[in-house]
């Protein structure tokens, strides 16, 4: 039994969209491909590169060995898509120039800005805290505030 099967067979906590049977990479793609592509495009706006990253995400062995228990595949896909997109973005450009733009243009450490720096620009919470001259716990709290501001679907 592989990790995907184990993840799906888990009879403990019931997640939102936990599937009833084991899923293949293609089934996960059919379900979350558009969401992953949207995430990748937010980080890497070039469609050709974004499509290459998308293929890497869904053909990656990490998808099979995703041990994001007790979360759903959606969470696993979000993490993986972001990680691969940030990796591709780092290869393309130096993060330093992007950070300078953001810190110079911003006057307020809003949850949107913090989310953008961490999720889209690829900075760690420690780096974001340092750039915005706030503590790491404030950065993490901003993530919570950011998602709290969106209504339930």
């Amino acid at each position: 039994m592989n990790e995907l099967e184990r993840l799906n067979d888990n009879s403990g906590h019931q997640s939102v969209s936990k599937p009833s049977g084991p899923l293949t990479s293609l089934e996960v793609y059919d379900k979350y491909g558009a969401m992953a592509y949207g995430i990748i495009l937010q980080i890497v706006p070039q469609p050709n590169l974004a499509q290459e990253v998308l293929v890497n995400v869904f053909s990656s062995p990490l998808l099979q060995s995703c041990n994001s228990y007790p979360f759903t595949f959606a969470v696993c896909v979000i993490k993986l898509a972001r990680a691969k997109a940030v990796e591709a973005k780092r290869k393309l450009m130096t993060i330093g120039t992007v950070s300078a733009e953001h810190t110079n243009n911003s006057h307020e450490s809003t949850p949107e800005l913090i989310f953008d720096l961490a999720f889209r620009q690829g900075f760690s919470p420690e780096e974001v805290a340092e750039k915005l001259h706030i503590s790491k716990s404030e950065v993490l709290k901003a993530f919570h505030e950011f998602f709290k501001s969106f209504p339930h679907s």
Binding site: S17, D30, A34, M35, Q42, A74, F147, P151, H152
Partner: peptide, 25 residues
């Protein structure tokens, strides 16, 4: 609730990829 919320946020920004990507995968 949290997973619903976070899925909802990312699904709002979902973009359908071209069909060729599926074949490649």
């Amino acid at each position: 609730d949290f997973e619903k919320n976070i899925n909802g946020y990312f699904l709002q920004n979902a973009v359908p990829p071209p069909p060729a990507v599926r074949e490649l995968i």
